[in-house]
Design a protein around this nucleic acid. Structure first.
Lengths: 231, 231
DNA sequence: GTCTATAAGTGGATAGAC
DNA sequence: GTCTATCCACTTATAGAC
């Protein structure tokens, strides 16, 4: 990430923001998240965000130096919440070996990964934001470019490692390259979300993902047709 | 589409625009395509497009009633060029049964479909535009929403039919639901492009797509490992 | 058909009072 | 820490001259 937002006091897990400034900051971030999610980055003004948070835009700019830093904070906060559920400590502010060591079994982690697409169905605005921004960010010089490049690198590596475990422990072992499959899986989930945003009823996302994973001997926790799952 | 742009004289295949107005119109569309592709829809002004086409923005607005209709024209023109290569007459201004009947064999159509992602590598701006817009367009009321909903419906149906042919004529026949696989394939291609835009070297798109298709007994024209291709 | 001029509005950002 | 007031760049779009 090209821009460090500071030390962020009171953001350790289980810590509520104490000072008034911290609470205002959090309120702004909530509003920004909601509005960016609903309408994207370019189409939302600082004035709208500030009004939603109960301030003027000048008041908001006291807490954030500009619109771009605000976006970067929104993204990294979302990822901290969301990715902690999947890969503790990995996407946040540098890996935390202690937390990262305390992992769930591989099968459970795969279930959670697929469950994320269902989880996302409840926040279509955020899904659209990520889809829009990840395309927008590909332009050189975009404020979120480094963020997305890193995000995909980490996700590819992590999912690749997960699939590697699962392939090796399968009976018989799966021969496919886990990193190639990881890239396909990630792309599949992204692409399904794009279609789902436009026509939700036409895209059963989780079903399609499990159909893909069946090709590599992987089945959902409650398997309706194919082989039983390990747990 | 919510807004019909008119009858568009002189746009039949093999017809060059005759009048000066038609030529100017085409020049504007070329400029708009290039600039939208490079920087997206919101970030490009009519003034930039007009300047690129060698006019003022007021002159441009003589040919197009506003920015949104211009975008819709850019999209539909691109699709006419591009999809005609794949599925003649399908995505344009209504299906043309005569042209649609003159199709290539199924295997060749699949090869072309996969080749499109390689083709797209030469116009990353347009790829980014489509990715960005397809997410942006999911908001209700977006000018390009109807366009993208239709686009994905048509592509799903068409690719589903193609895969149905290939699955049935395979030895032995493939049991998978061709429409489900079509949706996965489309999503995979979209998602790969998203990652490729951010880090081209990390995403061998065509390779990944063929790896996916191998799961269903389908191989590229020059198959390095698996069974020979039919042609 | 294209221009200049201008309307009418919104954007992000700053200065300084309170 | 939040406000009002203001600045300036820039947007889409219109009116009317040439």
């Amino acid at each position: 990430m090209s821009q460090e937002p500071g030390k962020r006091p009171g953001k350790e897990p289980g810590n509520e923001p104490r000072t008034k400034g911290e609470r205002t900051r959090a309120r702004i971030l909530d509003s920004a998240t909601e509005l960016f999610s609903r309408s994207g980055y370019n189409s939302v003004s600082l004035r709208e965000i500030a009004a939603h948070a109960g301030m003027t835009h000048a008041g908001l700019l006291h807490h954030f130096p500009g619109k771009e830093p605000l976006l970067l904070e929104v993204l990294s906060r979302r990822d901290e919440d969301d990715a902690a559920y999947l890969f503790p400590g990995l996407l946040g502010r540098g890996p935390d070996p202690v937390v990262a060591a305390a992992r769930h079994p591989a099968a459970e982690r795969l279930n959670r990964l697929v469950a994320v697409v269902g989880r996302n169905s409840r926040t279509p605005g955020l899904v659209a934001l990520y889809a829009k921004l990840s395309a927008e960010a590909s332009e050189p010089g975009h404020p979120a470019r480094a963020y997305f490049v890193k995000r995909y690198r980490v996700l590819r590596a992590e999912i690749g490692a997960l699939l590697g475990e699962l392939f090796a422990s399968s009976e018989p072992p799966v021969a496919a390259d886990p990193h190639a499959v990881a890239q396909q899986l990630l792309a599949l989930m992204d692409g399904l979300q794009t279609q789902w945003l436009l026509e939700p009823a036409a895209v059963p996302m989780e079903e399609r993902v499990w159909e893909f994973l069946w090709n590599y001997g992987l089945a959902p926790p409650v398997a309706p047709e194919r082989g039983p799952v390990s747990h």
